[in-house]
């Protein structure tokens, strides 16, 4: 593992690199959305059109996976989640700051902790939606459906949903960054020859990583919506 700068606060370990990357991602998302939402008009043009397209896109994900009327409750969450993860996936591709061997800025989702945090959030929202709909008793009874001895299987399903959701995005982005790093190392290993070979290879891999980053953000958000809607569509 690459060395990281960490510090202890209230008995918890914080990774400075992750924190800086997260703040940068949040700032990018917020500034973009803030700039696009100035001077709103009934007749949209330019940046307002772009923002409305972005909102329509995430609302489309919600509409296609969840029961109708869910955009009001989950639209904002899905919107923020999608663009946060999208920017997180892409950040490391164009911004990678390393000082003294310690990485300070990279894709936050290339760290399993961050990816699992968002997966846990999706899982918790799914559980919360189920509790809100069925009540605590009804919610826990769903784990014994259709027969009570399936309880461990159902619990295992929840756990695997959580794990696959987080690890999928982490694995893709981490692998993308790792391979990009390897190609970069190769480029500077044997002078001009490897540089000439690696440059187009790196270009190709960067482009592919952008594609993967977008797809993974979309998959992550869609699956989150599906998990929530599974909980919402359970018959009482």
């Amino acid at each position: 593992m690459d060395p990281t700068r960490t510090f202890q606060f209230l008995g918890l370990t914080f990774n400075v690199g992750n924190m800086i990357s997260g703040v940068i991602v949040a700032a990018i998302v917020f500034v973009f959305v803030f700039v696009c939402s100035r001077h709103l008009q009934i007749k949209p043009k330019g940046k307002q059109n772009l923002l409305e397209y972005m909102i329509d896109f995430t609302n489309g994900i919600v509409k296609s996976t969840m029961p109708s009327g869910s955009t009001r409750d989950y639209g904002l969450w899905v919107f923020t989640l999608f663009y946060f993860i999208l920017v997180s996936n892409l950040l490391g591709l164009f911004l990678h700051i390393e000082v003294g061997g310690i990485v300070y800025v990279k894709s936050p989702t290339a760290d399993p902790v961050v990816a699992m945090t968002f997966a846990l959030m999706s899982l918790l929202i799914a559980q919360y939606s189920s509790v809100m709909k069925l009540g605590y008793k009804g919610h826990f009874e769903t784990y014994m459906q259709p027969i009570s001895f399936l309880l461990p299987v159902n619990l295992m399903e929840e756990l695997t949903n959580f794990l696959t959701l987080g690890i999928r995005v982490y694995g893709n982005i981490f692998a993308g960054e790792l391979l990009a790093g390897l190609i970069a190392k190769l480029a500077f290993s044997n002078g001009i020859v490897t540089l000439a070979v690696s440059a187009p290879l790196e270009l190709l891999w960067q482009g592919f990583s952008v594609f993967i980053g977008c797809i993974q953000a979309y998959v992550f958000v869609t699956l989150s919506c599906v998990y929530v809607s599974q909980k919402l569509s359970i018959e009482e």
Binding site: T4, T13, T80
Partner: peptide, 27 residues
């Protein structure tokens, strides 16, 4: 890498704050 609970907490709070300001200023 050490499962840093601090990072998880930091990201959860960061995300909630981001969601809140996005709601106020844009959503």
């Amino acid at each position: 890498a050490g499962f840093n609970i601090g990072d998880a907490l930091f990201y959860a709070i960061l995300f909630i704050i981001l969601m809140w300001v996005v709601k106020i200023f844009a959503w």
